[in-house]
């Protein structure tokens, strides 16, 4: 029996995660415990949520460059209003989701490049975050803190949360009719439109859902850090894009994998720990991190070529 190209493509991210995990366990046997695993992976939970949000945007052939500032913004809301005045907090977050839906519609109606619009929005979110928390501070809502520091039996929370995120988004994106339509927009917008669907509405819904996941990411992050600052998640923009790509997604064509995206986020987090356990000098760490990315993406590229050749044959 030959493994199909698509399965192989799905397996690569999982294999790289397992390999990396094996290397980390070998170097640091202490990590092979309940607390060890939790410490290794708990900061990957918000990254996984942001990656899923980015994946949704990428599934309609767009790119969200405001992901990092938006997660920072939600973290600031979570650490201030959501904690002190939950109703206002929820209202702000709902408004933010509405803004995301509007951005989606705007990009569709005016045929604007999403990169430009979201880059512009990143300054808006960043500015709002600074307005809300000019000085680092705030406090995580009790329930968020409780949720992120919960200690479920047998399996650490970080793993449970990652599995839940992967399953839920898999159901939405790969198993629901909504998911098929969203990926359809990425694959061939016109055919979706000709089939009688409102692409405008679908795009707005996709953006809103992405905004929702990004907000969850912000709340999860605050639950871990206990308080926020306006620049807390700036790295998430690039991390989330890298996570999607590492997990087997593509920039265009609606080819995304929710499970892969979560695995990609975990891999990226683990890569950082791996380098730190390797005692690589800080001067080389950025380079080494880049090298890991290039190796995995190189694998993908090599595989894509291989796939193409097999098809043409």
């Amino acid at each position: 029996m030959r493994i199909s190209a698509e399965t192989f493509r799905q397996i690569i991210p999982a294999v790289s995660l397992v390999l990396l995990l094996g290397a980390v366990f070998y170097m640091q046997p202490r990590a092979m415990s309940y607390t060890g695993l939790n410490l290794l992976f708990n900061l990957a939970v918000p990254i996984a949520l942001a990656t899923v949000a980015q994946m949704l945007i990428m599934s309609v052939n767009d790119l969200d460059l405001s992901m990092g500032t938006f997660v920072s913004f939600s973290a600031c809301v979570a650490a201030t209003y959501l904690q002190s005045a939950p109703l206002i907090g929820v209202a702000i977050l709902l408004a933010a989701i509405a803004v995301y839906a509007t951005i989606g519609m705007l990009i569709h109606m005016r045929e604007l490049p999403s990169i430009v619009v979201t880059l512009g929005m990143s300054f808006v979110w960043g500015g709002l975050a600074v307005l809300m928390l000019p000085q680092p501070g705030g406090q995580a809502p009790g329930w968020a803190r409780w949720l992120m520091t919960a200690k479920p039996p047998l399996v650490p929370l970080a793993i449970v949360a990652s599995v839940v995120i992967a399953v839920v988004t898999h159901l939405i994106v790969s198993r629901s009719s909504f998911g098929v339509l969203v990926r359809g927009i990425g694959g061939n917008t016109r055919s979706v439109a000709r089939a009688g669907w409102s692409v405008l509405g679908l795009r707005a819904a996709t953006y809103a859902l992405a905004g929702f996941f990004a907000i969850l990411s912000g709340i999860a992050l605050v639950g871990l850090t206990t308080s926020a600052d306006a620049n807390i998640a700036l790295r998430y923009t690039l991390l989330s894009i890298a996570g999607v790509i590492l997990g087997g997604g593509e920039f265009v064509g609606g080819r995304v994998s929710p499970v892969g995206a979560v695995i990609g986020a975990l891999t990226l987090t683990l890569a950082g720990s791996f380098l730190s356990f390797m005692r690589i000098s800080p001067d080389w760490q950025i380079g080494a991190q880049g090298a890991i990315l290039i190796i995995v993406l190189g694998l993908r590229l090599a595989f894509n070529l291989f796939e193409k050749r097999r098809r043409t044959r």
């Binding site: 680092p136 501070g137 705030g138 992120m148 639950g223 871990l224 850090t225 206990t226 308080s227 926020a228 600052d229 620049n231 807390i232």
Partner: peptide, 8 residues
Amino acid sequence: SPTALNGA
């Protein structure tokens, strides 16, 4: 950050 590392 004076606060964002508090969890860790």
